[in-house]
Computed example of a mutant assay.
Amino acid sequence: MHFITCVLALLSSAAIVSAGKVTFWTLDDQTRTVYFTSNENKFPMDPVTVSNVEKTTVDFADDFVGNFVAVPEGELYRDGMLGEVKFGGWGGMTFFDVSAIVVPDDKDNVHQMWPADSQSPMSGCEIFPCDNAYYIWDDVQTKATTEDHLITTLGEGSTGINFA
């Protein structure tokens, strides 16, 4: 009986540790390295290589708050259009946005983010600039969802999804 209790405790803690995920969908032919930065370096994450060969899903720790940027293969790390996320926020919500604050004219990086199941709300746009991204500090463009799985597009192109 003690063994079963230990296994259930481990499974329960694993669910708590990995509570959110982002699937990266590359829309062009560039391979990129996605770099993650958590606030206060509380949840360090290794970079991940993504391409248009397949969508890549990355697990995030519960309560992760931070951002990610995608750097094209062969280029040095540089700032760009960011994906920002907070898993396990107020009321268990996931908060997210595409941030154009640092490099608003970046065309190679994060373009859109949305919840995987409902596909709404969506942050960002296929072509920048647009009025659906985060451009200034404390902008009202941050989105919220009860879902813990987000889709993020990288590079220019179309998903074929009509975000009404």
Rank of each mutant, 00 (worst) to 15 (best):
T94Y: 09
G89N: 01
Y135I: 02
G80R: 14
H149E: 08
F96Y: 15
V53E: 15
S38T: 06
P72A: 10
L76H: 14
K42M: 10
N109F: 04
T159M: 03
I4L: 08
N52M: 01
Q112E: 11
C130H: 05
R78L: 01
I161K: 13
S158V: 14
V103H: 04
S38M: 06
F24I: 12
T146Y: 07
M122H: 09
C130A: 09
T26F: 00
V22R: 05
I161E: 11
K86L: 03
G83L: 07
N162Y: 13
D59T: 08
T56Y: 05
K21R: 15
D117N: 12
V65T: 12
E147R: 01
N39A: 12
M113D: 09
F68I: 03
K107T: 13
F96L: 14
W137G: 14
A116F: 12
D59L: 07
T5Q: 15
L150M: 09
D59I: 05
T49M: 15
T153S: 07
T142A: 03
V48H: 09
L8T: 12
D139I: 12
D139Q: 11
N39D: 13
R32V: 05
R32T: 03
V102W: 09
Y35E: 09
V48Q: 08
G66A: 01
T23S: 12
I127C: 02
G92R: 06
S118H: 07
T153H: 08
Q141V: 00
A14D: 05
E54Y: 11
P121Q: 10
D46S: 12
E73A: 11
D117W: 06
V71K: 13
E73R: 11
D29H: 12
A70H: 05
L10D: 01
D105Y: 10
N162P: 00
T56W: 06
T94W: 07
S120G: 13
W90H: 12
C6P: 00
T5L: 06
S120R: 11
D97M: 02
G160I: 04
V110C: 05
G66L: 00
T57R: 08
Y77V: 14
E156P: 01
V34I: 13
Q112D: 01
I16G: 07
F96Q: 14
K143A: 08
Q119I: 11
E73K: 14
E75L: 03
D108L: 15
T23G: 05
C6V: 06
S51D: 14
